[in-house]
């Protein structure tokens, strides 16, 4: 299967197979006007299968969100049909408004305007906790 090469845009690669659509909705790619290609179950040497998303514009993505969803992801920034930069994602130390705190006793449950902020408290086990009530992200 061939998808046209991008002139200016980004390639989100090495997405764990099956996670592309989740990223698609988190990054709100449905709101873009440009071409977006979502490739699912692409054969991969390392992982057997992977997903790839190609966006035909220099989209300003939140790398923390990508790292949170899948720290194995790489992002290539393409300019004039050349890879200008290749970035490795990592688990972010905090994420804002990506996870919602579900603890009914948490202050975020009554004060709607508060950002939902989660902090990485255990990188090994990928445990994030709400900064307000310390509940674990589910």
């Amino acid at each position: 299967m061939i998808v046209d090469a991008i002139k200016n845009g980004i390639v989100i690669d090495h997405i764990t197979a099956g996670h592309a659509m989740e990223l698609y909705s988190i990054l709100e790619l449905d709101k873009l006007d440009c071409t977006v290609a979502v490739l699912i179950n692409v054969p991969s040497k390392k992982k057997g299968k992977k997903d790839i998303i190609k966006v035909d514009t220099l989209l300003d993505v939140d790398f923390d969100v990508l790292g949170y969803v899948d720290p194995n992801i790489t992002v290539s920034i393409i300019k004039d049909s050349k890879v200008e930069k290749k970035l490795e994602m990592k688990l972010p130390s905090t994420v804002t408004n990506v996870i919602k705190c579900k603890n009914p006793r948490c202050i975020t449950s009554t004060e709607q305007e508060l950002d939902h902020i989660f902090k990485l408290t255990n990188a090994e086990k990928k445990i994030y906790r709400c900064v307000y009530c310390e509940s674990k992200a589910k």
């Binding site: 603890n103 006793r105 948490c106 202050i107 975020t108 449950s109 009554t110 004060e111 508060l114 709400c130 900064v131 307000y132 009530c133 310390e134």
Partner: peptide, 23 residues
């Protein structure tokens, strides 16, 4: 009564906040 309310307060207040119990 809500957990984290004093933290919210400390981020907005211009004076020190002491948490006297949050839930």
């Amino acid at each position: 009564p809500k957990e984290g309310a004093p933290l919210v307060a400390s981020r907005k207040a211009s004076v020190p906040i002491i948490n006297a119990g949050d839930g």
